Amino acid sequence: MSISQQTVTIRFSEIKDAAQLMEIDDIVWDKYTAPEPLHWSSRDNYLLHCPPGSQLVAVCEDDICGYVGFRTPTGLESNHHVLELNIAIHPSYQRKGLGSRLMQAAKDMARLEHKRKLRLRVLSSNPGAISFYKTCGFHEEGRLEREFFIDGHYVDDILMGYFI
């Protein structure tokens, strides 16, 4: 069944979501999508770094199929107008419009919270994600060349932004 035929609810993350969100991180964040795979050592460690309410989750029936996380990049008041994002979609739900819906929900939430800029980072070795972010209106703001050495190759860290 396609996403368009299912009811998808987008809501803030809750403590009960931790196990499913950890599973998505374990599946999605690998050497192609992150500087190193992301494997949480425990549920408590996950909740310390990703507390309830710090993500918008997409729920199809009872399954969490993706999320967009957000946080202020620094504790500085002068940087409070910016949100840094990270997004992950379970492979079973990729390329079905869910990422676009989550990104739009993040933009809407940012507007309501009077944020002025969204930013994210993406590896140069991940052209699909770069294309997706550009489709969502993000543009390259900078590049940290050869920032990571992954799987025998240097990879750039691309900084992208979107102005609300």
Rank of each mutant, 00 (worst) to 15 (best):
Y162E: 01
E140Y: 01
T33C: 08
H139S: 08
R11M: 10
S13L: 04
A129R: 09
H139P: 00
L102H: 11
G75T: 07
A129M: 08
S125V: 00
M160P: 08
L76A: 04
G142D: 13
V59N: 00
R111A: 08
A58F: 05
T135L: 05
P52Q: 07
L98M: 11
S13V: 12
V155D: 13
H81Y: 08
K31I: 13
A88W: 06
E84D: 13
S92W: 02
A18E: 09
F70L: 08
R116Q: 06
L144Q: 13
E145W: 06
D25Y: 10
L85F: 04
Q5W: 11
P52H: 11
G152F: 14
K16I: 12
F70T: 05
M103K: 05
A58K: 06
L85Y: 00
T74Q: 11
M22N: 15
V68I: 13
E145M: 04
H39T: 14
V57S: 12
V68G: 01
A106H: 03
L123F: 02
W29N: 12
C60E: 00
G75D: 10
F163I: 09
I64F: 10
A34Q: 11
L118P: 03
A19L: 14
G152Q: 03
M1H: 11
E113N: 09
Q20R: 10
T74R: 07
V82K: 08
D26I: 02
F148I: 03
P91Y: 05
K134E: 15
D30V: 09
C60Q: 02
P127N: 06
R121W: 06
D44K: 15
L21D: 05
D25N: 13
I164E: 14
I130Q: 12
W40R: 05
K107I: 14
D62L: 05
H114W: 01
V57F: 13
L85H: 01
R143S: 06
A34V: 11
F163A: 04
A88Y: 08
A34I: 14
L120R: 04
A106L: 09
Y162L: 15
D63G: 07
Y46I: 08
V57L: 14
F149I: 07
P127H: 11
Q104S: 12
P127T: 08
Y93I: 00
Q5A: 06
V8G: 15
L85D: 02
P127Q: 11
F163L: 12
V57K: 07
D157K: 02
N45Y: 11
G161I: 01
S131P: 00
L112Q: 03
R119V: 11
F148Q: 04
E14T: 12
A105I: 04
L48W: 06
M103F: 08
T7S: 07
R121Y: 03
H114P: 00
E145A: 10
L159Q: 11
T72V: 02
E14G: 15
R101T: 03
